[in-house]
Write a protein that binds this DNA or RNA. Structure first.
Length: 942
RNA sequence: GGGGCCGUAUCCCAAUUGGCAGAGGAAUAGGUUUUAGGUACCUACAAGUGCGGGUUCGAGUCCCGCCGGCCCUACCA
């Protein structure tokens, strides 16, 4: 079959039509213009990027930012830039309304894929990363995104990670003062110890401690600290993982290797100290409620009390409870199998009255406990969860005393109590806790109701009520009983009010190569020493082997070995840190990928500053609070919900530390957050279940075929493996970047996920063609626009459109803004003449969405240079008033007539006219009620 | 199991926040231009809002209960 060549097909198209070919000529030209002229550079108040001559130098500021990408080797698909295009449209609009707009883009370039690629091919991760970043830059440039190119960086740039290390040192050199609820320099803490104004933990006086002991004490306070703590050790990957990198079934998110709980020395960040502020300050943020909720849940603050249950041997079991009001109903206790007290409380023999069911069939408690502990340790998380319906456990043989009533209560161990939460021990109140109820049923334990339940209520009751069987609490509500009990506990010395968090301290070290090195060395004591600022950055050394040592995936006893540790001549280093030249050992872990994204919003403000991570004046200008109570921060931060917890929590934490230490004036990094939706795509699979090239599938009568073979359609992510990727480059080539931008923005609201459909983009292309045709004669290329004034009706339509578009732009409702622009275009198209009065505002309003096209038309309309700083059209209020209003008249909710009246008609007159209009339908019936909704309708009730 | 978000023409989406269900796009059908049309233009086209109740003069919008989809979380004391 002979296909028509492109030139033949093009021969029929008018020479000056806005086609993809035309777009592909226009677009690179304007991209080059913007770049050459620094069109989108935003001036700083001070420093290298200050520019008093800039048109927006003294304007109100706006800082808009996207969550920056990890530049993967696959490049961008059409889903990735959705948010970027959204912020680009928004910032282009805001710039035209007079704002000094900061809209930067950078790259989160440390990360595993480049390292793994390096392991496989020997290519240095730096090379791979640089290549991918370059590719991303080109792809983004092709979309016409208006970034201030001077402010772009990668987290892997030594000039950048120098400051990541600097911030780490700030965290390391500070502690959290619980009285002041803020971080303070570690020197203040030491001064307090020296002066004796602060008690030294452990009971000794500061003067009695030797130098090493003092350092150990201080290290116990630092916000970044080395801890021998249970961590997720993954031998198959050769690294430890953060909790969030482990799947619910106890395997690694990446690679699906088994993960073991191991006690290992690792760097931690004391984020738990900020639990309260991280929860409380959410109220100050303009964030989507679901994201705030996810953060609250993740932090998991619960208020209650710590209560001590004394034991005969002198030990006391400390429990945490949120229900101190039910303390009289605590009929037994449970320790986590791993609890430290377990081995010391177990008696030699079962005490009198031990029920058979409690012993697990063992003759002595020690055997029962050992067997249960072994069994619990052998179970994976998955097994524990799967069996969660059946409560298991065993009696320890020991009893503790309930402090409120002196009752002896049996102490069990059971895996439904977690070692990692609260104190790892609970008081069990089976009457008012479902889990305790289940356990009590299984082990035949007494149940005592201490809160009244509604009449007829059977079984466990967790709701509100009045205290009963509870001595001095009787008659109090749950809330009052809690307060009363906490008061009593504190008076009697049996406990105190307490708050616990689900949030754990943040595991901050990884056994990887491609990450920020720690600015830390160890001296002969084995304790960490911070390097001075002058030695930053600690650059990543060159190594031959990028991979950590990996092990048999099931070898739980293996030890991590970092890639940097093999670089002996780097690890051993002679330095003079104040005590003369000494040999130190470097920290060979690297920081996790989140480190770089914890503060990048600040570096954009002052990207080349080599004296500070950001100049305070620049920070205050771009991110400072604007009123009392305002948290400050980025004015609009756009990204996917997948970062609802981790990235956003970590970044908030670092920002608060920097705020406490006086380095920034904003106490939150992101004032407003917006979650963009995802673009999803159809994928097609053949009879064997293999994905087939989606672009080759054709639809016939609601069924899908690849050639003659029928395939089934599935809906999901866009990705290489599903063979359904569409790239922005393809779209730019086939339709032009402007069409692509308009289509992405027009297909739905920015926060909605929707399916991609390439062929639907022609609608946007036709729209741009119509706008073009309004200005340019397609055959001659000449300007069609005249200076004739608009007719009155079209003029009103123009101003209505301007008014509506402005409102939509402010609220990021780009889909409806575009609909209004199409509507306006469709109003202007049939007019005999294209009036400049309408065309110029239209072109300006188009420019946020289709910037290349708009610039080109703006030039054809006789303007020099760029329209980026032209005033966005403003509606004339006089033109917004309708000439007349048509009121529908409802009788009992059904429209039965209409009246047309002047817009300023008084309500009485509208009522009269309306009743008149439906007099026939009313047929003499007397209206019971007449409701006039001004400007909307009239409702008559008979 | 708990929590959150969402269901409007064949498809993607609007609806002044409680006021006449349709702004816009796609698809489809017919037409104009054309030797031709995977071009452009014009015209037509369709749902009573997942289901069932309730509040109201009036409900897509608010409330309750189901159904379906997506996301978070999962013995957190």
């Amino acid at each position: 079959m002979v296909t028509m060549s492109e030139s033949e097909a093009a021969a029929d198209v008018p020479a000056f039509r806005y086609t993809a070919a035309m777009a592909n000529e226009i677009e690179p030209r304007w991209q080059e213009f913007w770049s050459q002229h620094g069109t989108f550079q935003a001036p700083n108040p001070t420093g290298e990027l200050a520019d008093p001559a800039h048109p927006r130098a003294n304007a109100p500021k706006l800082h808009v930012q996207d969550m920056f990408p990890y530049p993967s080797g696959e490049g961008l698909h059409v889903g990735h830039p959705l948010g970027y295009i959204g912020t680009d449209c928004y910032t282009r609009y805001k710039r035209m309304t007079g704002f000094n707009v900061l809209h930067p883009m950078g790259f989160d370039a440390f990360g595993l894929p480049a390292e793994q690629y390096a392991v496989q091919t020997g290519t240095h991760p730096r090379t791979t990363t640089a290549k991918n970043v370059e590719r991303y830059r080109l792809q983004l440039r092709k979309l016409g995104l208006a970034y201030d190119e001077r402010r772009s960086f990668s987290t892997t740039d030594p000039d950048y990670y120098r400051w990541t290390q600097w911030i780490f040192l700030q965290v390391f050199n500070s502690w959290f003062d619980r009285e002041q609820r803020k971080a303070r320099p570690i020197a203040d803490l030491i001064a307090g110890f020296e002066a004796g104004t602060r008690a030294v933990p452990g009971g000794k006086a500061w003067g009695e401690l030797d130098a090493v002991e003092r350092r150990e004490v201080v290290n116990g306070y630092r916000l970044a600290y080395v801890s021998e703590a249970p961590v997720n050790w993954c031998p198959g990957l050769g690294t430890v993982l953060a909790n969030e990198e482990v799947t619910p079934d106890g395997r690694s998110e990446r690679g699906n290797f088994p993960v073991f709980q191991r006690s290992l020395k690792q760097w931690m960040m004391r984020i738990t100290e900020y639990g309260d502020r991280l929860v409380d300050d959410l109220d100050a943020l303009d964030w989507p409620e679901p994201v705030k909720l996810m953060q609250r849940n993740w932090i998991g603050r619960s208020r209650g009390a710590h209560v001590g249950f004394p034991m005969d041997g002198g030990d006391t079991i400390e429990v945490f409870t949120t229900r101190p009001d039910t303390l009289f109903g605590a009929t037994y206790m449970v320790l986590a199998p791993e609890h430290a007290l377990v081995s010391s409380i177990v008696p030699a023999a079962w005490p009198e009255g031990t029920k058979d069911a409690w012993t697990g069939g063992h003759a002595i408690p020690e055997a029962a406990v050992a067997a249960y502990r072994a069994q619990a340790a052998a179970k994976t998380e998955e097994e524990r969860t799967a069996e969660s319906k059946v409560k298991t456990g065993v009696f320890t043989g020991a009893y503790a005393t309930n402090p409120v009533n002196g009752e002896q209560v049996p102490v069990f161990i059971a895996d439904y109590v977690l070692a990692g939460y609260g104190t790892g021990a609970i008081m069990a109140v089976p009457a008012h806790d479902e889990r305790d109820w289940d356990f009590a049923q299984t082990f035949d334990l007494p149940i005592l109701r201490t809160i009244t339940a509604p009449e007829g209520h059977e079984g466990v009751y967790t709701g509100d009520g009045v205290a009963v069987n509870s001595g001095f609490l009787d008659g109090l509500s749950v809330v009052d009983a809690k307060t009363s009990m906490i008061g009593w506990l504190e008076e009697q010395g049996h406990g105190r009010g307490a708050t616990t968090y689900r949030l754990r301290d943040w595991l901050f070290s990884r056994q990887r190569y491609w990450g920020e090195p720690f600015p830390i060395v160890y001296d002969e004591t084995g304790l960490p020493v911070a390097l001075p600022e002058s030695m930053l950055p600690v650059e990543l050394p060159e190594v031959d082997d990028f991979s950590p040592r990996t092990f048999d995936p099931d070898d739980a006893g293996s030890e991590p070995e970092t890639p940097l540790s093999r670089k002996k001549d780097w690890v051993q280093v002679e330095l003079d840190l104040g005590d003369g030249p000494k040999t130190y050992t470097r920290e060979t872990n690297t920081m996790p990928q989140w480190a770089g994204s914890c503060w990048y919003e600040l570096r954009y403000l002052d990207p080349h500053n080599d004296k500070a991570f950001v100049d305070p004046e620049n920070e205050a200008y771009w991110m400072g609070p604007r009123s009392a109570g305002d948290p400050g921060g980025v004015d609009l931060y756009v990204g996917g919900v997948e970062h609802a917890v981790l990235h956003l929590l970590y970044a908030r934490f670092w920002h608060k530390v920097l705020f406490d230490l006086g380095h920034v004036s904003s106490f939150e990094p992101f004032r407003k957050l917006f979650n963009q939706g995802y673009i999803q795509a159809y994928a097609f699979k053949d009879a064997r279940g293999f994905p087939v090239q989606a672009s080759d599938v054709v639809e016939r009568d609601g069924r899908y075929f690849l050639g003659e073979q029928e395939v089934v359609r599935e809906y999901g992510k866009m990705g290489k493996s599903l063979k359904n990727v569409v790239t922005p480059d393809e779209m730019a080539h086939e339709y032009g970047a402007d069409t692509f931008r308009v289509y992405e923005m027009a297909m739905g609201p920015l926060d909605a996920s929707r399916p991609w459909e390439t062929r639907a983009a022609v609608g946007s292309q036709r729209f741009l063609q119509r706008v073009w045709r309004l200005v340019v004669n397609e055959d001659s290329g000449e300007l069609r626009v005249t200076d004739e004034p608009l007719d009155a009706k079209s003029r009103r339509a123009l101003h209505r459109a301007i008014d509506g578009v402005r409102a939509d732009m402010e609220e990021l409702r780009f889909n409806t803004a575009i609909a209004k622009l199409i509507e306006l275009t469709n109003t202007l198209t049939p007019l005999p003449t294209a009036s400049r009065e309408a065309v110029e505002p239209l072109v300006l309003m188009m420019s946020p969405f289709a910037p290349h096209l708009a610039e080109e038309l703006w030039g054809k309309l006789g303007h020099a240079g760029t329209l980026a700083y032209a005033d966005f059209p403003a509606a004339d209020p006089a033109q917004l008033a309708a000439e007349s209003i048509t009121y529908p008249v409802q009788i009992n909710g059904k429209v039965r007539g209409r009246v047309e009246v002047a817009p300023d008609t008084a309500e009485d007159a509208v009522r009269a006219a309306a009743l008149d209009a439906v007099a026939e339908v009313l047929a003499g019936r007397e209206p019971r009620k007449v409701i006039v909704v001004k400007g909307r309708l009239v409702s008559v009730v008979v």
